[in-house]
């Protein structure tokens, strides 16, 4: 009987916690969106967004173009990225003007392979969507690179997502806790009813 009570109370505690988590995950995220509309010259790249993101502040991007382009999410601040590319362009190309050349970006990627959070190559007319919710505090710089020799038009939307807690992970935990809680509570509830 004591074990049933102990497990039953553990179950009710788990249910109470899952109720709190469900409440938290039900709060809809607040969003801020900004349009992206760029013309990227052939063999060049552009920084389209940068910011500091946390597990409660994520970033999503939906984008399309009229040519083949690369999209990179880099874990560096725009300041660090600017400094590195500027220095490299000055030292190797003898002119900081060329810092937006795709060669500079490729050199940065070669030197900092761990800084690539996500990347994708998409072609004309293809819609790309990516959502990034970090697990720690990170600086993010979003870069679009045009490896072709033609001018490419890129447009889409970037969205910052503010959540009370990461929805997916919280919901999964809510479901697990609620399931265990119910299993533990049932025998206790039955014995209480019999009493």
């Amino acid at each position: 009987m004591r074990w049933i009570t102990f497990l039953g109370r553990t179950g009710t505690v788990l249910l109470a916690i899952s109720l709190a988590l469900a409440l938290v995950s039900l709060i809809p995220p607040a969003t801020y969106s900004a349009p992206i509309h760029r013309f990227v010259d052939g063999g060049m790249y552009e920084v389209v967004w940068s910011g500091r993101y946390t597990p409660k502040l994520g970033l999503s991007i939906s984008i399309r173009s009229n040519g083949s382009v690369y999209l990179y999410f880099l874990s560096v601040s725009s300041f660090q990225f600017y400094n590195w590319t500027m220095t490299w362009a000055e030292e190797n190309l003898q002119d900081p003007y060329y810092r937006f050349n795709i060669t500079v970006l490729n050199e940065f990627l070669k030197a900092h392979p761990d800084d690539v959070l996500w990347n994708c190559n998409f072609s004309s007319g293809e819609d790309v969507f990516y959502e990034f919710i970090p697990t720690s505090v990170v600086n993010v710089t979003v870069v679009i690179a045009n490896p072709s020799s033609n001018l490419v038009e890129v447009e889409g939307e970037i969205r910052e997502i503010v959540t009370v807690s990461p929805r997916k992970r919280t919901l999964t935990l809510t479901q697990i806790l609620a399931s265990i809680g119910i299993v533990l509570v049932v025998p206790w509830a039955i014995s209480m009813r019999r009493k």
Partner: peptide, 15 residues
């Protein structure tokens, strides 16, 4: 339900 109320408050306050 004392323990349950406190568990609820802990979890809600934490997140």
């Amino acid at each position: 339900p004392i323990l349950e109320i406190f568990a609820f408050l802990y979890a809600l306050g934490t997140f």
